[in-house]
Design a protein around this nucleic acid. Structure first.
Length: 333
DNA sequence: CTCATTTGACCGTC
DNA sequence: GACGGTCAAATGAG
């Protein structure tokens, strides 16, 4: 009754698998701790160490994500529907006006991620509605089906189901399935517009949060170009702690990294690095993961980015960004 | 004209 | 057979 679709498919992991993950995470956290405290702050910039830090953080994050989500998932404790293997049934191949090839359809293979109750339909992502159904459980509240807008072009398989809350008709119960693999321009880091003095902000990257309606939006083309820039700047970061590149901040690197490791999720930690106007890089986790109140399954659910790439970590410098022109890579149509 | 939404049918799973 | 998720033609909005 409470959860629409009590967990689809492979949403839950075996308890011992989760335990293994947690144990491994603990080991990695211990390694992180020893690395951070066993090295002098000035050695933070050592590439080898930072690479290892990166790998450790990635590992911890991915495990945290998979483990916690599988625990959180309503089906995690042992989903009923679709828990077993998929039955193969002969295609019907019924003649009719909308007959389709029998090869195609599969049911919601994306694992259940989370369910939220919110009054805002806007969650910072772009969705396309592809269906609506009246559901047996709540005939008065049809369920709407959305998929990521970037499914055709980027193959993002994230979907969500929206249903009006039975208890409160002004609220929506939104179930998310699958992780976003797309680079949604509305949720990726974008470069601060150059309306500020170029000398001060030319190298400043802000991991902007779309956050919903309150945020002023850049036009899609511009966002897209910014995304391309962001990806081009550092497709494979060699150092997660962006300010390690700043000599001014190098002494703070260890403490900040310690804060980072002790306060996962990562949101807002790196954002405190704005202390140098010339080369610092500032960021925070994408705001679409800062879920509104009413988050089902506890507070932790909304804190984890969908993928390491969406953490908002950036490093490096733009160097000589050409002032008020953001076409540093020449993406002009 | 293009693109997003609506809506009925199809199809997989129980 | 019921149910629910997805497809795709039809429709509407910009």
């Amino acid at each position: 009754m409470a959860s629409p679709d009590g967990g689809v498919g492979d949403g839950g992991a075996e308890p011992h698998e989760v335990m293994d993950d947690l144990l491994e995470m603990r080991e990695q956290a211990a390694m992180l701790h020893s690395m951070l405290h066993g090295t002098s702050p000035s050695s933070c910039a050592a590439a080898a160490s930072t690479r290892q830090l990166n790998q450790l953080i990635d590992g911890v994050m991915s495990r945290l994500q998979s483990s916690s989500l599988s625990v959180m998932s309503p089906g995690g404790g042992g989903g009923r529907r679709g828990s077993g293997g998929r039955k193969k049934k002969g295609a019907k191949a019924v003649a009719g006006p909308h007959r389709r090839s029998s090869s195609g359809r599969r049911r919601s293979k994306s694992p259940f991620v989370r369910m939220v109750t919110t009054k805002e339909l806007e969650d910072g992502r772009q969705w396309r509605k592809y269906g609506q159904k009246h559901i047996q459980d709540s005939p008065n509240n049809p369920r709407s089906y959305y998929r990521c807008t970037h499914r055709p072009d980027q193959g993002c398989m994230a979907t969500k189901q929206v249903q009006t809350s039975e208890s409160n008709s002004s609220e929506f119960v939104i179930s998310y399935y699958g992780e976003h693999t797309c680079s949604d321009p509305s949720t990726i880091p974008f470069v601060v517009e150059a309306e500020a003095p170029a000398a001060d902000y030319a190298n400043l990257i802000s991991f902007g949060s779309s956050g919903g309606a309150s945020t002023s939006r850049v036009d899609p083309l511009r966002q897209s170009r910014h995304r391309l820039m962001a990806e081009a700047v550092d497709p494979t970061p060699s150092c997660s702690f962006a300010n390690c590149h700043s000599p001014v901040l190098s002494s703070e690197c260890a403490s900040e990294a310690a804060a980072l490791s002790s306060s996962l999720p990562l949101s807002a930690v790196v954002g405190s690095a704005v202390t140098t106007p010339s080369t610092s890089i500032v960021g925070s986790a994408p705001a679409d993961y800062d879920w509104p109140s009413g988050l089902a399954g506890g507070d932790m659910a909304g804190s984890f980015p969908s993928s390491p790439s969406s953490l908002g970590f950036m490093t490096g410098s733009f160097g000589n960004l050409p002032g008020d022109d953001d076409d540093m890579f020449g993406f002009d149509p």
